[in-house]
Structure formats: structure tokens, C-alpha cells
């Protein structure tokens, strides 16, 4: 199955990002938050978000959004299996987005090694607390010079640039 995985913490904008480029609104598995995530948003994904794009030869590229809460992390590896690559979204407005970035890079380390990853920093319009250079320096120190861009998850163009960068990583 040809699929691209969208991962990241709760509220990073995974569902929104998928919806920005997909042909149908993402089919979700949202329920009302009852834990600390309720402070971030009203609903959260418990299994996956799903949508797709169709290529000119009829091939469907499936877009899967993983659940953000780490108690569902068993779903991450299941969803990522045989995927083309990873789009990792990090909420810049979070108190410690670098820690989140490190966490997800470690959680998907094997998948990233086999394929590739691109990182989108969301909610830059509401927070300039953490300059992009901090994320660039963080990745450089880990010897992981992955693409990291400011994105608006609602912007079709921004998400397309993320995917194009992922394809460039995969091709080279």
C-alpha cells in the first residue's frame, strides 16, 4: 500500500494538514478528550485519520494521520508499516517543542532510517517563542539535517512543499 504518514503530538495539525491536500475530508476516529489533552483541544484522534489523493494512473496514495497521544503509540508502528515516508508536525506554541521533536524522531527512528522525514512547525502565526534556528540547531546536533519548515496546516501550498521536500529526501 502506498501511503504517507502524518505524525506528531496532539493539536499539531495533522488532521488539518491531511485535509489541505486530500480529495475527501479526512475520515476520522475522534472522541472527546477526557485527559490533559482536553486543555489543548476538544476532540482527539484515537486510531487514525484517513484520506487519499489519486494519481494520474489511478494509483491511490493513502494519507494516514496517527493519533497524537503517546498512549496510542502502538498504532504508530502499525500505521507506518510499508509507508513511503513521514510528515512530522510539531506545534511551535507548545512549551517544549524541541523535546516533542526529539521524542517523535526517536519513536519513528527505524521508519525514518528506511524512508525519510520532513518536519513542519505549525502555529507559527500565534507563536514566535521558538525561532526556527533552534530546531535547525537541534537537528544538526543530532546529525539529522532533515527539512524543517514553518507551515500553516490549513495551507495547501505549505503542505505540498512539505511533501515535495519529502520526495526530494527520498529521491536523493
Amino acid at each position: 500500500m502506498d501511503k504517507i504518514i502524518f505524525a506528531g503530538p496532539v493539536g499539531a495539525g495533522k488532521t488539518t494538514a491531511i485535509g489541505s491536500i486530500s480529495e475527501i475530508p479526512p475520515v476520522g476516529t475522534d472522541v472527546t478528550c477526557t485527559d490533559e489533552s482536553a486543555q489543548i483541544k476538544e476532540k482527539t484522534t484515537v486510531a487514525m485519520d484517513y484520506s487519499y489523493i489519486t494519481l494520474d494512473d489511478g494509483t491511490r496514495i493513502h494519507l494516514y494521520g496517527t493519533p497524537g497521544q503517546d498512549r496510542f503509540d502502538f498504532m504508530w508502528q502499525i500505521l507506518a508499516k510499508d509507508g513511503i515516508g513521514l510528515v512530522l508536525l510539531i506545534n511551535r506554541d507548545h512549551p517544549d517543542p524541541l523535546h516533542q521533536l526529539g521524542f517523535y524522531l526517536n519513536a519513528f527512528a527505524d521508519f525514518i532510517q528506511e524512508t525519510g522525514v520532513v518536519i513542519g512547525l505549525t502555529k507559527s502565526d500565534i507563536s514566535d517563542k521558538h525561532d526556527i534556528s533552534k530546531f535547525q540547531d537541534f537537528l544538526y546536533e543530532r546529525q539529522q539535517v532533515f527539512p524543517v519548515f514553518d507551515v500553516d496546516a490549513r495551507s495547501e501550498d505549505d503542505i505540498k512543499v512539505l511533501v515535495h521536500a519529502l520526495l526530494a529526501v527520498l529521491n536523493h
Binding site: D56, T59, D157
Partner: peptide, 12 residues
């Protein structure tokens, strides 16, 4: 080939 077709589908 697949990556080329994805790029074409999501053209900017």
C-alpha cells in the same frame, strides 16, 4: 516513477 507521479499530482 511513483514519486514523480506524486510530485505531478501535488504540483505547485
Amino acid at each position: 516513477g511513483l514519486f514523480s507521479r506524486i510530485a505531478k499530482r501535488l504540483s505547485l
